[in-house]
Write a protein that binds this DNA or RNA. Structure first.
Lengths: 240, 240
DNA sequence: AGGTGTACTATTGGATACAATATCGCTGTC
DNA sequence: GACAGCGATATTGTATCCAATAGTACACCT
C-alpha cells in the first residue's frame, strides 16, 4: 500500500493540517469512516490530540475534494462522509482514464530508448500482477498493490504539477470505491493484464494516440467489470 | 464576465472563506496581484476587514489549486502568487481540453432533439462571437465574454460533480493566462469560430468521438495561437 | 393527551491570543 | 571596512475563546 501518488503531499501550512488530511482521508477511503458518518470538528480534534484549527483546514480540503459532503442547514454546514454513488463512480473512472490518458500520451512521446526501458519495466510489473492474480489462495491486497504499481510506473514518468495534482486528488477517490466494493475480484481482473499489454505495446512503439486509447479503454473496461461486481453484490443488474 | 462556472461555488464553512477565496482569486487572475507577490495573512485580513481565520482557509485553497506557491522555509510556509510558466500553460490547456472533451462527449450522447436545440444555441453564440470579433473597434472584453459564453453553453448541460468541480478549478487558471497575455488578440482568434463550428456539427450529429476530438483540437490550436502571441510579446519564438 | 413555547445543548464560524522561528538590522570587534 | 553575534521584528502555526444558531428535550398550557 505504499503509493508514490499519495506520498509527499506538500501540505499548505504546518504539518498538522496535512497529517490530519491524510489520516482522515485514509479513514474514509478504507471505509473506516462510513458514508454518511458525521465529521465533527471537536470530536476529531480530541481524538487526534490537536486543536480544532488544523482539523478545520483538513475538513475543508476533504470537502472541496469531494470526500465530505455538506449538509447545509441555515448558516452552518454539517459535514458528513460523502455517499458512494454509481454515477460518481462512472465519472471518476472516466476522469482517471482521461488523466492517465494525458500522462501516457506524454510518456509515449519520450525517446525510444527511454520508452523501451519503461515498457520493459511495465512488463515486469504486469507479469507480477499476473502472478499474484493467479496465485492460490489469492491475496487481494497483493493484487491491489500490483495494480497500483503498474499505473504508478508510468505516472511517475510524468512531471507536470497540474495533471499530477489532479491525479493525486482523483486517484484516492477511485481507491475509495475499489476498497468499498472489493473491486476486480475473481475472474473480473483477468482481462486487466491483457489490456495492460496493449498499453505497453503502444508505449514501446511510441504511438501516443493508441496508448491513450488503450488507457482509456482499460479504465472503461474496469468500470464495466467493477459495475458487474457491484451489481452482483447489490443484486440489481445494471448496464454499464 | 458573468460566468456560470464561477458562480455558486459552495464554500466549505461560513461565507467569509468563500468570499475571500473568490476575491483573492479574482485579484490573481486579473493580475492585480502579480506573480511573485507575497500573500501575507494578516495584511490581507486587515485589507478586507476580517480576521486571519477565513483568510487562512482561502489561502490554503488557493495554494492547493495552484494559484499560490509555497516558499517553504524551515517550519513555516510563505505563500506567493504562483509564477506563470509556459510549461504550466501547456498543461492547463491540455487538461481543460480533456475536461471539455469529456463534457462534449456526454452532450453528444443526449437525445437528438436536445442536441439540435443545443447546436442551434451554440450557433447563435458562435455568430455573436464572430460579430464582436469583427467589430471595429473591437472590444477585447466582449470577445473574451463571447468565448466564455460559448463554452459555458455546453458545459452547463453536463451535471456531474467530479468533472464540474475539476473544471471549475482549472478554468479560472486558464483565464489567468488569457488575461496575462491578452490572449487571442488580432488575427489569432479568427480560426476559433471555425473550430467551434466543427464542434457544433459533431454535437448535432451525435458523434461523440468527433465532438471530443474537435474540442481537444480547438484547445490545442488555441494553445498554439496563444503561444504565438506570447512569443511575439517576449520576442523569443518557441515551437508549440 | 397533544401541541406549543422555551430553555438547553451541541456545534459551527470567526476572532483573538500565544508560541515558535526565520529574517533583518544593528552593533561591536578585529 | 567586513564579519560575527545578538536582539528586534515580522509572520506563521496552533490553541483558545466568544458569539450565533439549529436541534432537542422538557415542561407547561389548553
Amino acid at each position: 500500500m505504499t503509493q508514490l501518488v499519495n506520498m509527499p503531499l506538500p501540505s499548505a501550512h504546518g504539518e498538522l493540517p496535512g497529517q490530519m488530511y491524510e489520516r482522515l482521508r485514509e479513514l474514509i477511503i478504507r471505509g473506516r469512516l462510513p458514508a454518511g458518518a458525521r465529521a465533527v470538528e471537536a470530536e476529531i480534534a480530541v481524538r487526534f490530540g490537536v486543536s480544532r484549527t488544523p482539523v478545520r483546514e483538513a475538513l475543508a480540503r476533504l470537502h472541496h475534494e469531494g470526500y465530505l459532503a455538506a449538509k447545509n442547514l441555515g448558516r452552518r454546514t454539517q459535514l458528513i462522509v460523502a455517499p458512494l454513488t454509481i454515477e460518481q463512480m462512472r465519472e471518476l473512472w472516466r476522469v482517471i482514464g482521461a488523466l492517465e490518458g494525458l500522462v501516457i500520451e506524454f510518456v509515449s512521446c519520450l525517446g525510444a530508448a527511454r520508452r523501451r526501458q519503461i515498457a520493459r519495466e511495465l512488463e515486469e510489473l504486469n507479469d507480477a500482477l499476473e502472478r499474484v492474480s493467479a496465485a492460490r489462495p489469492r491475496n487481494a491486497d497483493d493484487v491491489f498493490d500490483a495494480q497500483i504499481k503498474f499505473h504508478e510506473r508510468f505516472i511517475s514518468e510524468y512531471d507536470g504539477p497540474v495533471v499530477l495534482s489532479l491525479y493525486r486528488t482523483v486517484r484516492p477517490q477511485v481507491e475509495r470505491y475499489e476498497w468499498a466494493y472489493g473491486a476486480e475480484s475473481e475472474a473480473e481482473l483477468a482481462p486487466s493484464a491483457g489490456e495492460h499489454r496493449k498499453i505497453i505495446d503502444a508505449v514501446r512503439s511510441g504511438d501516443a494516440h493508441r496508448a491513450r486509447a488503450a488507457v482509456e479503454a482499460h479504465w472503461a473496461n474496469a468500470l464495466t467489470r467493477t459495475s458487474a461486481v457491484i451489481s452482483r453484490i447489490l443484486g440489481k443488474p445494471r448496464a454499464p
